[in-house]
């Protein structure tokens, strides 16, 4: 039932906008001999339907969340205004601070490690053009399009007590219950992140390297530059933009890894793999701290924003 009634309000508003657009156009035509590029009020009608949905289901919840984050609220009774106390708690509460630490630790695995490996490899590859690039690109990028829940299921098998990883490491006595281990659970999740992101990074860098003019390499060689000088003077500056994009995308992925944590360890063992994204759900629905959950959500958003702006400026050297 609700399935068929669901989208209707939307289609109606779109349809209404359509007819409204048409009638406005009719009305505007007699005086419509405007020079091209002049302000055209009809444009607002084109933006309106999108803006309404966007305002109601993205901007409003964002503001509402900021409002809720100023309250101590369990989601049921009347909340009490507490000012910025929830934000203070995010950074002072021992468990929540540990969660932030876990997120930063995961950035190493999601962003730094793939970019380091990818950069060195692609730089080393830069001096030769590769055939069959489309095939390699398709395979390397594949982990990016698989649902994270499916990725989690696959890796739980790989990390399982009787899984393929332990089958290999067991030969040298290094097998353990990876995702249940207090020391290794978080790095184990991190390595899944590395697996997901490294393909993206390599695809990005390979595309960037192809755009560096061959003449620059020829010139460097004529000048007698070795591989290291060549890397520093040609490849590195040529890949600045790609490095900035890669770091941004992978860092954001590291900050928003609810799906992976929820479906591999559920935050355990103990609280050892609880990350801020997990705490948003946990605080709201298990601890009854809805205001705190909203504050954590906004701290994640601020982190995403800061990384986006900061990394772009830093790596690309803008302003």
């Amino acid at each position: 039932m609700s399935a068929t009634t669901g989208p209707r309000p939307d289609e109606e508003s779109a349809a209404r906008a359509t007819t409204a657009t048409a009638s406005v156009r009719e009305a505007a035509r007699p005086s419509g001999a405007r020079p091209p590029g002049a302000p055209r009020r009809i444009g607002y009608l084109y933006v309106l339907p999108a803006l309404l949905v966007y305002a109601a289901f993205l901007l409003w919840p964002l503001l509402h969340g900021a409002w809720i984050s100023l309250y101590a609220w369990d989601g049921l009774s009347v909340g009490t205004f507490v000012g910025l106390a929830n934000y203070v708690e995010v950074f002072t509460d021992e468990e929540l601070r540990a969660s932030l630490g876990h997120a930063l630790f995961l950035v190493l695995f999601y962003a730094v490690l793939p970019c380091l490996i990818g950069f060195v490899l692609v730089a080393a590859m830069s001096r030769a053009r590769v055939r069959g690039l489309t095939f390699f690109r398709t395979v390397l990028f594949l982990p990016q399009v698989v649902a994270m829940v499916a990725v989690a299921v696959i890796w739980k098998w790989i990390y399982a007590a009787d899984g393929p990883l332990n089958a290999v490491l067991g030969l040298v006595g290094l097998d353990r219950a990876w995702l249940g281990d207090f020391t290794f659970a978080l790095p184990a999740i991190g390595l899944i992140g590395t697996w997901v992101e490294i393909g993206l990074v390599m695809v990005l860098f390979m595309a960037g390297v192809q755009k560096i003019p061959m003449e620059l390499y020829d010139a460097a060689r004529v000048d007698g530059a070795g591989p290291v000088r060549e890397f520093l003077t040609v490849t590195l500056p040529g890949l600045r933009r790609e490095l900035s994009v890669a770091l941004t995308l992978t860092t954001v992925a590291a900050l928003r890894n609810f799906d992976l944590v929820w479906n591999t360890t559920g935050g355990g063992p103990g609280t050892n793999t609880r990350v801020p994204a997990y705490q948003v759900y946990n605080q709201a629905f298990s601890e009854g701290e809805v205001g705190l959950a909203c504050a954590i959500g906004l701290v994640i958003a601020a982190g995403v924003f800061a990384f986006n702006v900061g990394l772009t400026r830093l790596v690309e050297g803008r302003r």
Partner: peptide, 14 residues
């Protein structure tokens, strides 16, 4: 730049 994490709780209550 707004992650789902920042929206999902208020959305649920709305």
């Amino acid at each position: 730049m707004v992650p789902t994490e920042a929206l999902v709780i208020p959305l649920f209550f709305d």
